[in-house]
Amino acid sequence: MTSTILQAGTRPRAIRMSPAVRRELALVPVIIAALIVGTILSPTFLTANNLLNNVLVNSSVLGIVVVAESVILISGYFDLSLESIVGLAPMVAVWLVLPSSLGGSGLGIPSWLAIVACFAVSAIIGAINGLLVTKLKLNAFIVTLAMLTLLRGVTTGISGGQTLSRLPAEFLFLGSARPFGISIQIWIFVVVVIVVAAFMQNHPIGRKVYALGGNQAAAASAGIKTTKLTIAVFVFGALLSALAGLMLTGRIASVTSDQGNGLIFTVFAAAVIGGISLNGGQGTIFGAFCGVLLLGIIQNILTLSRVPSYWIAAIYGLVILCALIFNYLAGARPRRNTQRA
């Protein structure tokens, strides 16, 4: 093997885009178009203040859950229960800390320990989801739907349906800190996107996730431990969602029993608009990031342009449909049905 003669240098690559890159960049012109439309409709739209403090900050929590869901989708599965972890994780943490007079447990656990505990709980939930879909081969849709309902119920149960507020400073930090004048929410979002994108694109673990979602049998016969990897992916998704939950709680300085409710639909929309395939193995974190940006901009434009609030949901849904159709036309077609066993 080692004695094989190397091919005399690889051909210099012409500057042309591979289909994958073309698909990734498909949303960029749409985002630019949305920016132009926004500028025309509202004078306050194209300002640093609006773009940073409204568009990006409002997109950060959604964006982190989208990153989590994208990794799970690329691995060939999906997880509806992420939105309930966005509610449960901060609820558990805050409940452990607060005195019973404020609706907490009265255990008086230090904030840092409570935060560690809520991540641990989330990891366990992810591991259970992963075990159920791999070991018992249950369908991910129904498993995570049941988990979603269960966790939503636990969140309501812990809090007695109340909103917990008067949070310790450690919780507020994630919402109010502004390093270098920019909200920490944006920092966290951007760092998560960059790190996860780099991992998925170039780290062996990320490439194994793509292989897993692209053809599980081929991944297994290449020596990839598919069961372990799947469980790890679910745990990772749950941990990121817990982080998103803590960020949301920090921003609104309280935790409600229905925090995160309905978020998962927007999460799927952003991921799919961003080119993540529901069949697994396709799409990039950068694409998903573009999907989040586009939805954030559209949401912002709808708010600024004083569309009657009763109609916002309808228009939002219409825009998502249009984005999907555009995406299809731009070449992000669903994969060919390859023959499977």
């Binding site: 490439r207 692209g214 081929a218 396709q282 390859t338 066993a341």
Partner: peptide
């Protein structure tokens, strides 16, 4: 069935 991941590149499949 279990030899190739169709969407991944040639070089990536060969080094999986």
């Amino acid at each position: 069935i279990n030899g190739l991941v169709p969407d991944l590149s040639v070089e990536e499949n060969a080094t999986l």
